[in-house]
Amino acid sequence: MDNIGNKVVIVTGASSGIGEAIVRKLAADGAIVVLAARRKDRLEKIAGDINASGGKALYYTVDVTVEKQVRELVDDVVARLGRVDVMVGNAGLMAQAPLSSLKVDEWDRMIDINIKGVLYGVAAVWPVFEKQQSGHFINISSVAGIKVAAGTGTVYSATKYAVRALSEGIRVESAGKFRSTVIYPGYVESELMYGSSDEKTREAVIAGYAKYAIPAASVANAVAYAISQPADTAINEIVIRPTSQEF
């Protein structure tokens, strides 16, 4: 697609689901994709597929909750490729449960991945974008960042509302220099459905995905659309739901 070819795009959470779909789509459109996640075997397989089919991909084993690892990832990409054009903050955890179950450890983990993980990416790439005087932040929130699922999704929603606020703050603070896009997926095929330790909630979530979920490629196409716009045009927000999802 126009304006995607040869752009250097870092994608966190790239070992499965939405992240995997994004790197495969952008590589097919000519981007140089950088995969970041914890599962080396999955990253190696996906990057290998892309390179074998004529695309360009690098991969890094990274835990987005460790700021040093994210910073070193970005530094190494710049050293090897000379720039970063797009940072996609996609890594996430959806550990849904009633607030009253007081799963504090899971709250902490979601805050670390869903909020800090995105912030660490911003902190690592912002100076690069400043030097280039160009760049694009794309953050994956959720429909839960627009509407709270009563009874099970309060803390998850809180983290995804935070991603929404962060993305809007990036837009305001970087106006005229960088672009900011936040995407709110509804039921989309991913491993997020398995994140809940609360058995009743987990069963309900999996049933919801079985009923509604659309392919992760739907989000990848939206990411490609946002990147492909001319430099003077920013697609700031995209909501993607299955046509049959009524909430």
Rank of each mutant, 00 (worst) to 15 (best):
D2E: 09
I4H: 01
K7W: 07
V8R: 04
I10R: 03
T12Q: 07
G13F: 05
S15T: 10
S15R: 03
E20M: 11
I22A: 07
I22W: 07
V23H: 06
V23F: 11
R24N: 04
A28T: 02
A31V: 10
V34P: 09
A36D: 10
A37I: 07
A37D: 12
R38F: 07
R39E: 06
R42H: 07
E44I: 10
E44D: 15
I46P: 02
I46F: 09
D49E: 11
A52N: 13
S53Q: 09
G54E: 13
G55F: 01
K56E: 10
K56A: 01
L58D: 01
D63E: 14
V66Q: 11
Q69A: 14
Q69F: 10
Q69C: 13
Q69W: 12
V74A: 03
D76C: 07
V77P: 04
V78S: 01
R80F: 14
L81Y: 13
R83I: 08
D85N: 09
G89S: 05
G89M: 01
G89P: 01
N90P: 11
A91C: 06
G92L: 13
G92A: 15
L93S: 00
M94G: 04
Q96S: 07
S100Q: 05
S100F: 06
S101D: 15
K103P: 10
V104S: 12
D105W: 09
E106Y: 08
W107K: 07
D108P: 08
R109A: 09
R109H: 12
M110T: 06
D112P: 12
I113V: 15
N114G: 00
N114L: 12
N114D: 11
G117R: 00
G117L: 09
L119S: 09
G121L: 11
V125I: 06
W126S: 14
V128N: 07
F129M: 01
E130A: 14
K131W: 00
Q132L: 03
Q133D: 13
H136Y: 06
H136V: 11
H136Q: 11
I140T: 09
S142C: 14
V143G: 12
A144K: 02
I146D: 04
K147V: 15
A150L: 14
A150D: 14
G153K: 00
Y156V: 13
S157W: 04
Y161N: 10
V163C: 07
R164D: 08
L166M: 13
E168K: 08
G169C: 14
E173Y: 03
S180R: 08
V182D: 00
V182Y: 03
Y184H: 09
P185K: 04
V188R: 06
E189V: 14
E191S: 15
M193C: 05
S196C: 02
S197I: 01
D198V: 05
E199W: 05
E199F: 10
V205L: 09
I206T: 02
A210Q: 15
K211M: 07
A213M: 12
I214Y: 02
P215K: 12
S218W: 09
V219L: 13
A220M: 13
N221P: 11
Y225E: 00
A231C: 03
D232P: 05
T233S: 14
I235S: 03
N236Y: 03
P242A: 05
P242M: 04
P242R: 12
E246W: 15
F247T: 12
